[in-house]
Amino acid sequence: MLEIILIFIIVGTVIAIETRNMLSSVIAVGAVGFGVSLMFLFLQAPDIAITQVIVEILSLIILIRTTTYADNEAIEKRLDTFANMTGLIFLGLFLAFCYWAFSDLTSFGQPLMNVSQYYLSAGLTDTGAANIVAAVILDYRAYDTLGEAIVIFTSILGAFVLLRTKGKKKTEEKDIEKVGIPE
């Protein structure tokens, strides 16, 4: 089952890159996101699957809103044979070394590490939370969550500073000369 979803994701990615219409490219990106969330569901991670679906919907809304008003045709494609061939050769080398290196790995989820064994056995009595993911991200690893929240807070602050209209100075001629940006 996992292989079918992986092939679906790869096909969706190729369509998203190769298609000429921007809107169909965006829709293909959305299909890839839903495939990724299905894969998380089959790997038994429902928390991540829910988050992936919802963030995918919100980003898809924003992308569709921007592409419907923008110029819908992609730019003319230029083929660079030397760059493509070099990229393909190095990708082949990478995959060959991957096959050589990953054949020594243990199977998926085996064996459990010491720390995850401790979390699974003592998580309920330590924190009282039935959802072990919530127990890990908000009790054992609460510093990490605080850092993530601060990252989002800072990025929102930066976006508001860039997008704001009040208090923004109008560009004059001397600013353009100073920065050196042509109009």
Partner: peptide
């Protein structure tokens, strides 16, 4: 999703994005 985050799958982040989607 937010309030039952410690019992069922979900949590603060997923529930918060759902609230944002409702307003959107």
């Amino acid at each position: 999703i937010i309030i039952y985050g410690h019992l069922t799958p979900g949590g603060g982040f997923a529930g918060g994005v759902i609230l944002a989607i409702a307003y959107t």
